[in-house]
Design a protein around this nucleic acid. Structure first.
Ligand SMILES: [Zn+2]
Ligand SMILES: [Zn+2]
Ligand SMILES: [Zn+2]
Ligand SMILES: [Zn+2]
Lengths: 134, 134
DNA sequence: AGGGAAGTGTTATAACATAACGTTTTATTA
DNA sequence: TAATAAAACGTTATGTTATAACACTTCCCT
């Protein structure tokens, strides 16, 4: 698989626009919010956003947060394992973690029941350390 | 906390209707599909479904599958731990599992980063054993 | 140059979810 | 049991998220 640098060089105009908007955000962003921000750059229709997000997910540059209907940049790590997202109820920040044990636990559970996993979603809601401290 | 039997005795008409529809289904069901099925019993508006589903979730009788925008009955087990849902891409069936190790791993990950967890979502997509066999 | 794959733009529509308001039912307790 | 509070209910309107269908363009490979 190509590394992220290589992938970035191949990005299209729309992909770069969406990526830039996501980078600017400190939180996951919804598709229509992205659309609003990118209207000034010529994007007009939801599909332009949804298609681009799908492409960026395919490139493993972006993740979709299922419980938020929103998207966020992948942390810099090149990873094949399942990310764990910690989502703060208060400030909306999201952190991406990896855990070997957890990944292998998931695999075991699947295996035990004969289920062949494809894609795993782990999203934890709660309060981040900063919000918890204040 | 009351057990499920006690809870069931207290269910309202709408709750019973939705519950019955969910029981009949072999897969998670969307809110509007429930609405369609329950029109003949007098339910007319989406809100009647959404409210009832919220109540049933509060009662821990029903779970929402975030990655499907659909709801399913809780397996019979009375559980406080985080359920793991295995969702088959082919047949749409969903199985609910629990895993001590996984639950404690999740707790550890949270703790390490100072995050205080509230609600965890674990949904695995793939192929169930039956579909895999065929 | 020819042909296929990926990307793009646009209009229309589908699918999912909540706001706001008032009424009815049920439970609590004076 | 009558007053009251809390929960559930019904209805209309609206907001939010996502995809279908179709035509056109760009890029890459042979
Ligand atoms: Zn990632
Ligand atoms: Zn926070
Ligand atoms: Zn359950
Ligand atoms: Zn299956």
């Amino acid at each position: 698989m190509k590394n992220k640098l290589t992938k970035k060089q191949a990005l299209t105009k729309n992909q770069l626009l969406v990526l830039k908007a996501l980078r600017k955000a400190k939180q996951p962003v919804g598709a229509y919010e992205l659309l609003d921000q990118l209207r000034e750059h010529g994007l007009k229709a939801p599909l332009q956003i949804y298609r681009t997000l799908d492409q960026l997910i395919e490139l493993k540059i972006v993740h979709r947060l299922e419980s938020l209907n929103a998207w966020t940049l992948c942390c810099d790590a090149e990873h094949d394992s399942t990310p764990v997202f910690a989502i703060c109820n208060d400030c909306g920040s999201v952190n991406e973690f990896f855990d070997e044990n957890l990944t292998s636990n998931l695999a075991k559970i699947s295996k035990k029941s004969g289920f062949v996993a494809d894609r795993s979603i782990i999203e934890i809601h709660g309060r981040c350390d900063q919000c918890e401290a204040s």
